[in-house]
């Protein structure tokens, strides 16, 4: 692969791309094209993965996390094409002038060439900035040929929802030597935030110590999100070595989907439940309010994950516990 795809040439193509963009700039406006880059985002996808979907997701990310995006499509068949091309994602800030652009490199490679991928990506990564690796395909995530690439990354992101079993995904993440992110966990942020905000006053917080039981309801078979949520509640409600029982119960929701969480104890009855007509019903004792609970697209989930390239203490504490729960349930 390294012989077929020359990083130096890609870098020359990128330089040429910027020259072209500059030449297209209206000389009358006298405004240059601005390159924006806050990280290198490497996306490894299966050759059959929806290219338009990936492109839309990346376009949706660029304003928040302008990056040099390197999209690697891995083709399973031998003799698959080896190719690389460069393009720009641009948008129009104030006044509709073409102004800010991000680079995108697309690489096609065969699976048998994966072991050379790190040698191509390393020189292409933007200097001094974090490298985030988004592994879209569970098989590729686990591929040992990508070990070198994983070592290069500041953070590795997967979506455990796509894995065959939650236990396998969570174990893999827990064993990762690189900082990890999981979009299945990110999907839970609105749920967790609603509960955190609902109890965030002295009167209610004083009663948290009296919580005797917590419950998570989700569609069967339970996905990693359900195990994450149960583990998070256990983590949040722990009192020293003592863990509050958290029940994970089946609901009529679609497989893996969360339908609610609740806390019960002395003087406190709190719940966040998905409402049939959409949104969430948040209840603290007798007071119930409604809040939006949007289904977040990949771009929104990644936006949150890319904002955290440093420590993520709550996730790092919850992950091993969730992996243990999922493993025990799998027997």
């Amino acid at each position: 692969m390294t012989a077929a795809i020359d990083p130096e040439r890609i870098l020359r193509d990128l330089a040429g791309l910027w020259r072209d963009l500059g030449q297209q700039d209206d000389p009358e406006s006298r405004d240059g094209v601005l390159r924006a880059c806050s990280m290198t985002l490497v996306v490894v996808a299966d050759g059959g993965d929806d290219p338009a979907g990936i492109g839309e997701t990346l376009a949706g990310l660029m304003r928040d996390h302008p990056s040099r995006a390197i999209v690697v499509r891995v083709h399973r068949e031998s003799g698959a094409p080896l190719a690389a091309r460069v393009l720009a994602q641009c948008w129009l800030p104030f006044g509709g002038r073409k102004q800010i652009c991000c680079e995108q490199v697309e690489i096609d490679c065969a699976q048998q060439s994966l072991d050379g991928l790190a040698a191509v990506v390393l020189p292409l990564a933007a200097a001094d900035l974090p490298v985030v690796l988004w592994l879209r395909n569970p098989d590729l995530a686990a591929a040992p040929e990508l070990d070198a690439l994983r070592m290069l990354a500041t953070k590795v992101i997967i979506d455990s929802r796509d894995w065959q079993t939650p236990a396998a995904a969570l174990d893999w993440l827990a064993a990762s030597h690189t900082r990890a992110g999981d979009l299945a966990w990110t999907r839970l942020t609105p749920w967790r935030m609603l509960l955190a905000h609902a109890v965030d006053n002295p009167g209610v917080l004083g009663r948290i110590a009296g919580v005797a039981q917590a419950r998570v309801t989700a569609g069967e078979p339970f996905g990693s999100s359900a195990w994450y949520l149960a583990a998070w509640l256990k983590h949040c409600l722990r009192r020293g070595e003592c863990l509050v029982p958290v029940r994970l119960e089946a609901s009529g929701a679609p497989p893996g989907a969360i339908s609610g969480l609740s806390l019960r104890g002395s003087g406190l009855d709190a719940s966040v439940l998905s409402a049939p007509e959409g949104g969430a019903a948040v209840r603290i004792n007798a007071v119930e309010t409604r809040s939006p609970l949007p289904a977040l697209p990949d771009a929104a989930l990644l936006r949150e994950e890319l904002a955290i390239t440093g420590p993520d203490p709550v996730y790092e504490a919850v992950l091993p516990l969730a992996a243990k729960l999922a493993r025990e349930a799998a027997g």
Partner: peptide
């Protein structure tokens, strides 16, 4: 978010507000 809120996750979301 109150310092003693066990459900806080400052890396991910902001604090809530007091009842009023």
């Amino acid at each position: 978010m109150a310092a003693n809120n066990p459900f806080a996750d400052p890396a991910r979301y902001e604090s809530g507000t007091p009842d009023c």
